[in-house]
Computed example of a mutant assay.
Amino acid sequence: MASPAADDYLKTIYSHTEWQDEAITPSALAAKLGVAPSSVTEMVKKLAAGGLVSHVPYGAVRLTATGEARALGMVRRHRLIETWLVSEFGYAWDEVHDEAEVLEHAISDRLLGKIDERLGHPRFDPHGDAIPDADGSVHREAFLLLGSAPASHEGRVLRVSDRDPALLRALEGIGLVVGRVVTVEGGDRVTLGGSTVDLPTGAGDAIWLTA
Rank of each mutant, 00 (worst) to 15 (best):
A92Y: 14
M74F: 08
E117I: 06
V102K: 14
A100R: 03
E42I: 14
S39D: 09
G34L: 07
L63D: 07
Q20D: 14
E99R: 15
L112G: 01
G113C: 10
T64R: 06
E18A: 11
Y58D: 14
E99W: 13
L63V: 12
R70H: 05
L80P: 00
H55K: 06
G113H: 08
V61F: 05
A49F: 09
P37V: 01
A23P: 15
S39K: 10
S38W: 00
V86H: 12
L33F: 01
M43I: 13
V86R: 11
A36R: 09
H97P: 01
E82H: 08
S15Q: 12
R79A: 07
E18W: 03
W93R: 15
R76S: 02
V96W: 06
E104N: 10
I81E: 02
D116Q: 12
H105T: 06
E117Q: 14
P26I: 03
L52T: 03
H16L: 00
E117T: 14
T83Q: 13
L80C: 07
K46T: 15
L103K: 11
P37G: 00
R79P: 00
A65Y: 06
E22F: 01
G59I: 05
V96Y: 06
Y91C: 13
D116G: 08
A69S: 10
A71S: 13
L103F: 11
V35D: 03
V53L: 07
T83K: 14
G67T: 04
H55R: 08
G59D: 08
R77H: 02
T64A: 05
L63M: 13
L85N: 03
G50A: 15
H16R: 03
E99M: 14
R118L: 14
E104I: 06
T41D: 09
H16M: 00
D21P: 11
R118F: 10
R62K: 15
R77Q: 02
S39C: 09
W19F: 14
W19P: 00
S54D: 11
L103W: 10
V56S: 14
A28I: 04
E95L: 10
